[in-house]
Design a protein around this nucleic acid. Structure first.
Length: 279
DNA sequence: CGTATCCTGACC
DNA sequence: GGTCAGGATACG
């Protein structure tokens, strides 16, 4: 579930390896071999890491040959840096560098992917604007939603519409914007679209402000569902049956496109007045 | 458009 | 031992 902010924190860890040369990449789980055949691994030896960019939830690692590694952490992936020494549990890939340091892809569910491309072009084809980018504004959103008649919650999860939002921040943003997640994306008013964009920005900015080293931020990369831990950090996500923090009515959970959506049926309804700016 | 698939761990 | 969580993708 790492979403844009958590991927950015992960990228920062990978960035500590910039300028160093790869001495080996080992894949320790078969799921990674689908996109990264064993025969291509040897060719990475001697590649220097030039930069680590983030687009949506993807990381693009630029190598000295001009090739790029495209990494997606999916649900439970994260980077851990090591000075050599013991292997961490759930390590699925291990980059070793000439400095003696290593970068481990730690991923309990082993759904993360790494692929090797000849160049950075088309590394992440079809991705919409980053949710934190200026180009993600309400007119752009309106444009992309005009032709699509799907619930707004599902539209926010569609990376072609906007990149970087996952199930948690989609629910949180809609709560903040006071928009019913079931509303059809092509039927939203301009006021609602503005609220949604502002709420997405606000929710993500808040998450990005968290210190990556803090316990709260670390928990962001591994939500323990049903544990109630999310209760402290979220307004609606994982809070089914609990009182809404705005109106005290009970938070409901529905399934949209196979994914759970938590929302407040009272605050997030069309008849409910929305604040014009902020709040 | 929906549904299955990949994976594992947590929880019942 | 069964169910469920989840992002992206493939397929009906």
């Amino acid at each position: 579930m790492p979403e844009l902010p958590e991927v950015e924190f992960a990228a920062d860890k990978a960035r500590t390896m910039i300028g160093q040369t790869i001495t080996s990449l080992r894949l320790l789980h078969r799921s990674l071999r689908r996109n990264l055949p064993a025969r291509t691994l040897a060719s990475l030896r001697g590649e220097r890491l030039l930069s680590v960019a983030r687009r949506g939830k993807y990381q693009i690692l630029a190598l000295s040959s001009g090739r790029v590694l495209v990494v997606h952490l999916r649900m439970t992936g994260d980077w851990e840096t090591r000075e050599g020494g013991a292997m961490l549990p759930h390590t699925r890939a291990l980059f070793e560098f000439d400095s003696g340091r290593s970068l481990a892809l730690v991923d309990s569910r082993a759904l993360a992917t790494i692929s090797l491309l000849g160049n950075a072009e088309d590394a992440v084809p079809g991705l919409g604007p980053d949710a934190t980018d200026r180009s993600f504004n309400w007119t752009a959103l309106k444009d992309r939603l005009r032709t699509r008649r799907i619930p707004i919650k599902q539209a926010l999860l569609d990376q072609r519409v906007v990149a970087g939002i996952g199930n948690i921040y989609a629910a949180e943003a809609l709560w903040k914007a006071r928009v019913d997640p079931r509303r059809h994306s092509n039927m939203l008013s301009d006021v609602e679209l503005r609220s949604i964009v502002a709420a997405v920005r606000s929710v993500l900015r808040r998450a990005l402000r968290r210190n990556p080293g803090s316990p709260a931020a670390t928990a962001g990369a591994e939500v323990r569902y049903r544990s109630g831990e999310g209760d402290l950090r979220f307004n609606v996500y994982d809070r089914e049956g609990k009182p809404c923090r705005r109106c005290q009515r009970t938070i409901r959970r529905i399934v949209q496109g196979g994914r759970s959506t938590c929302f407040c049926p009272h605050c997030q309804s069309q008849s409910q007045p929305r604040p014009g700016r902020g709040a």
